[in-house]
Design a protein around this nucleic acid. Structure first.
Lengths: 205, 205, 205, 205
DNA sequence: CATGAATGAGCTTTCATTCAT
DNA sequence: CATGAATGAAAGCTCATTCAT
């Protein structure tokens, strides 16, 4: 299976250790731990194994690092979502299942990035925030469209498709905040369980 | 109905405009908007309508303000939860419904405080964090106990009670991040819907 | 004799030790010695006998200090010039002599400030520079007007009044760069000599 | 007529577009515009059409560039002055006129370099400054000697030869700060005028 | 010479906090 | 409580300079 976009993600279900440039990896680690404003450029540099000016050789500002990181993260989410949809059967339920599975997998494997993006949205400067939010809305609209289409076709059933869509997205995002890859449950176990929950929200039994 | 603790909350279902001392109200507003590290004491003072030394008259440090605020917030949550349980019938389902309803109501009416507590946990200094987490765990254990008891009694049915409990809490907390009191849905509408979802998670049909 | 403007300067001929707020005095000293860009805020603070944040309590930026200093300096020059003209007889020659004497006295007694203003004009940010230059042009136009009027009345005689005016101003400003108050010549000696030179430029014999 | 020194200057009255190595030309432009401390090596490199390491291939430091530039400038001034004296008649007045004319021409045609040298003297490190000042004093002494000799011979007449010499030098230097080659007056016009002024200072009528 | 990556030292500025009044 | 002045510590960022290629 191939996608037009990018070539970074081989298969939407497969997650390798995230490969990020040193600076972004350090930003993910430090911003995730102490927050954007709670992280100093010195800490960031140390985490990156660089000097402070070394950081500034690659990025013009701390803000640019945050923005780039968040864009890299959401770009991966959207690309995987598109691949999931492209590779699934073209029935409402299959499309729904694929997208939710993709969302869940992403928030399990890219936990830190997902949480960081949620909590540091406010730390983006207005222009950057607008660009990020536009991208995030793309992702949300993919789910909105599928739920709505499913309801219209009769495959899904909920009186409030928009609310359901948002609740499902919120549920998936929430997984990132407590799932531990080294916990007792496998990805597949949790997938099965949460897929069942989300399906119940849109009236699949 | 009475509780041992406090006397601030008249009825666990009823939410008035939150009554906070000026400093805490300002902290809720500013920390919520720009984060703890993203807020300066001057901004805090301005939001409180005070001078900076005025702030320090009430609190020894910015950290103390965050800690006090988060404790006030979680104390209210726990007190309401206890009242909800105390006022509900002593059946597993009634207890479950009451606690979830309380959780949901709280995260709808105290959205900002709930979100702030989640995102600024990392900004608490170790000792404060430990005390806060202990208190938050109390709340989580209330739900854990009820789910477990319900499963043991046969009223609830899930093979993974601990996971279910955590997923439910996560769902309720997540509501705070997108619910808008001025949106199109009433509290009761959302309550009904989310109660149904959480019930489905623990096998109530 | 009175002036409408200000009340700082008692008599245009009399110069006391310049009375500047601590920060401006330090700026005059340090900027004058090493230049604006060559002076660090730490050096400035040390010269002012303050801490660095102490400086920023009074001024928002290093640039603001430079601007304020230069405005204070030129304001004094202009005020003294106006007083000189007001106190002189209303004949072309008396007006010319008074203004040149004022210019010369100023550039002898306020040497450092005058030199600093000349050399740091380029260090002013565009908006500040525009405001300063407008003020400096006021001063130049006072001389231009007098020379022109003198030529028209026949009291002065030069075929190029504008050039003469600029050359005279330049001569007076230049005095600041080499006159030493502790040198061998008194103010009055130099005054006499330079007044003779400037008079010769405009054809007074 | 020839000089022992150099061979760069064909005739002391003739000024071609200044021919400087790329780095010095860029230094003249940038240091002149924003000052030595106000110019970064990157700006310098850009102005030179070179890379930053390219600059360091030619010069060991930014300070070395300033020093070299200032020495090149004053060397040209001194060489032209010597040629002017060598080519003039050996009478006090002719010698005086030649030297002043040379000084004036130089400060009209090499305006930027002259102003830069004046304002960046303080940016030279002590050792460099000492060497530069020694050179500049050579130039000043040429004028001092001629004025003194002229007074002694009776051709010139001023009670303060040293002051007069300094004032004349100051006047000539000052020309650089306001003369514009694209202005309304030709070099010759200004020469005539300023020569008359300086002659009046030393009592030539 | 250019490119690109890197850095020690230091820059301007800000922060939380304090103290005298 | 407010005002105003002050500060140690540190923040984000930049500088001149270097080195490998």
């Amino acid at each position: 299976m191939t996608t037009e976009e990018s070539g970074v993600v081989a298969d939407w279900r497969t997650y390798e250790e995230q490969r990020l440039p040193r600076v972004l990896a350090a930003a993910l680690e430090t911003f995730g731990e102490k927050g954007y404003h709670g992280t100093t450029t010195r800490q960031l540099a140390e985490a990156a194994g660089m000097s402070v000016p070394g950081i500034y050789h690659h990025y013009a500002s701390k803000q640019d690092i945050l923005f780039d990181l968040m864009m890299v993260i959401i770009d991966e989410l959207i690309e995987r979502s598109q691949q999931a949809l492209a590779s699934a059967e073209d029935t409402p339920r299959a499309q729904f299942d694929a997208l939710v599975e993709s969302l869940l997998r992403f928030h399990m494997h890219r936990r830190r990035g997902a949480m960081l993006s949620t909590s540091e949205l406010r730390s983006l400067e207005p222009e950057n925030r607008a660009r990020y939010v536009a991208r995030r809305d793309e992702q949300q609209r993919m789910l909105d469209r599928i739920v709505l289409a499913g309801v219209e076709s009769g495959a899904l059933s909920t009186p409030y498709p928009a609310d359901a869509s948002r609740a499902i997205a919120s549920l998936c995002v929430g997984v990132a905040s407590w799932y531990r890859p080294d916990g007792q449950y496998s990805v597949d176990t949790l997938l099965t369980r949460f897929l069942a929950i989300t399906e119940s929200i849109v009236g699949i039994r």
